[in-house]
């Protein structure tokens, strides 16, 4: 319990720093800044208290907002996927995930990929709808969600395989 607690604290801090100091400055093609901090929600233990998880996600989003002058856009998007995570997991992993022995590392690659992709898709949809905040620019929202979403997905997959979660 304590070791997992500390791992999560360190992960939290490192992901915030990597996000604001590296990926917010990437500006690939002038507008693509992948959001890798979503990995925190992907890696977070499944059996933990849900309220604490939502609270922690709010803090995560808020920390990113503090650095990137985005008001509370990251917070809103992050708590949305934190709240929806059980729904997404039930959809991806079926009823399996409620068993005591369920581990993310035991699932198939395709399932992990879908899980991550859905988290990113929902997050980016909420984020860019709120950022642009007008249906007149629907095309711009779709463009940003697709382009930045796929960049986030690729980088999250790379990071995910680099730091695998066998311990949990």
């Amino acid at each position: 319990m304590t070791s997992s607690f500390f791992i999560n604290i360190i992960r939290f801090i490192l992901l915030v720093l990597v996000q604001v100091l590296v990926f917010n400055r990437l500006n690939f093609f002038g507008f693509i800044n992948p959001m890798v901090y979503i990995l925190f929600l992907y890696w977070y233990p499944i059996k933990e208290n849900r309220a604490a998880f939502i609270g922690l996600s709010f803090l995560l989003g808020l920390s990113i907002d503090f650095f990137s002058d985005t008001m509370a856009l990251h917070s809103a998007a992050t708590i949305t996927i934190a709240y929806l995570r059980p729904v997404i997991m039930r959809f991806v992993f079926g009823i399996n995930y409620e068993f005591q022995s369920f581990k993310l590392s035991n699932t198939t690659r395709a399932q992990q990929f879908t899980f991550l992709a859905l988290l990113i898709l929902v997050h980016h949809l909420v984020y860019f709808s709120l950022e642009i905040f007008s249906f007149a620019n629907l095309l711009l929202i779709v463009k940003k969600v697709l382009a930045i979403g796929s960049a986030s997905l690729i980088l999250c997959l790379l990071f995910g395989s680099l730091f695998s979660v066998n311990k949990e």
């Binding site: 849900r50 939502i54 709010f58 008001m71 856009l73 708590i79 949305t80 934190a82 709240y83 709120l130």
Partner: peptide, 16 residues
């Protein structure tokens, strides 16, 4: 959980 989510969402939206 739902109430907590709605509460935090309203805070975020208000700021945004």
């Amino acid at each position: 959980n739902f109430l907590l989510y709605i509460f935090l969402l309203i805070i975020s939206l208000a700021f945004t």
